[in-house]
């Protein structure tokens, strides 16, 4: 009987100890990350940055899902995160629209949603907590301002300038906002005109095929404005095949700042790239840490970004990670 009471006390003590230790050490926070795909070096750098940043903090567990550029995959991934009762969802939207219902589900389950890089459409923005990422519209404006300065330097500021545009995936936030930003600057330059605009789907093959067709129909192109570097790199191949020199005969503006674009700038085949910083991991971890600690989070967290052309590309190249 004595033994029995002793065991009982021991068990009770053990339980108290266990529960105390459970209180002392907070459970790990599970974060579900739905990436839209891995279509470019940029996207891969972004993914790795987020994965590494979460790996560095053992109080987080990251569930990663690659939607392979399909919205239905992404919605499925978010649903499965909700079903697994994750503490927070990180999410890069493939296109802007169509995520309302699934975000509504997350909200009902009480799971905060933090967007990374690409935002959802305006009407769904009340369903997410914050967005960490680039100001795509500002990037478009930067490209326009760079072009204005470059043309002034070359003494072409008042000449008629025909611009062809390679748009990103139709309906995606960067495609819409970059086009908008660039057109804001265009308003100050009535001599600029966008003569052709087609979607190259953010891919090299797409950019090349569209540019090939443009070059055949249009002998009077001064500027190529591509919504990302992959398309610009493809288009540069098409320009070379047409017997022209990209960077000289046609001014090439790319966006994102991937390594390939830096090489092209150093070879004189591309004129500039507007950086769109993919290394969002540290900022994402910080935001979610603040969220866990109950701090207030701003509705927008901007990333710090630059612009590279022939003057500074070579100097910055060795430090580029993507």
């Amino acid at each position: 009987m004595r033994n029995f009471r002793k065991t009982l006390i021991l068990i009770a003590a053990a339980m108290v100890l266990f529960s105390a230790s459970a209180f002392a050490k907070p459970k790990t926070w599970v974060v579900g990350f739905s990436q839209e795909g891995s279509e470019s070096e940029w996207r891969t750098a972004d993914t790795i940055s987020v994965q590494n940043a979460f790996l560095a903090d053992p109080s987080f567990d990251l569930l990663y899902s690659d939607a392979q550029n399909k919205q239905e995959n992404q919605i499925m991934a978010i649903r499965s995160f909700i079903a697994r009762r994750v503490n927070c969802i990180l999410f890069t939207a493939l296109v802007e629209t169509g995520y309302g219902p699934v975000l509504e589900e997350a909200k009902r389950a009480g799971i905060p949603v933090v967007m990374i890089d690409r935002d959802v459409a305006k009407e769904d923005r009340h369903l997410r907590l914050t967005i960490i990422g680039s100001d795509f519209m500002k990037e478009g404006e930067k490209a326009g301002i760079w072009l204005a300065n470059y043309l002034k330097e070359k003494g072409m500021a008042d000449k008629p300038i025909n611009i062809v545009e390679l748009q990103g995936t139709v309906g995606s936030a960067p495609a819409i906002e970059r086009a908008k930003g660039f057109r804001i600057i265009m308003k100050d330059h009535p001599n600029w005109q966008i003569t052709r605009s087609q979607s190259g789907d953010f891919t090299t093959a797409g950019g090349k095929a569209v540019m090939e067709a443009f070059l055949k129909e249009d002998k009077n192109i001064q500027v190529l404005f591509a919504h990302n570097d992959q398309m610009a790199l493809g288009a540069e191949q098409a320009i070379k095949e047409a017997g022209l020199q990209p960077g000289k005969d046609i001014i090439v503006i790319g966006m994102d700042g991937v390594k390939g674009a830096f090489q092209a700038i150093m070879n004189g085949e591309q004129n500039c790239t507007v950086e769109c910083n993919p290394l969002l991991g540290p900022q994402a971890v910080q935001a979610i840490r603040d969220l866990r600690d109950g701090k207030k989070i701003p509705p927008r967290i901007w990333t710090i970004e630059g612009l590279f052309d022939a003057t500074n590309a070579a100097a910055a190249f060795p430090t580029r990670q993507y």
Binding site: Q68, A205, G206
Partner: peptide, 16 residues
Amino acid sequence: IVCSNVMSADGNNAGV
């Protein structure tokens, strides 16, 4: 042919 045309291999987008 797809790979050689753009001199790059893109697992996600080649041949979609």
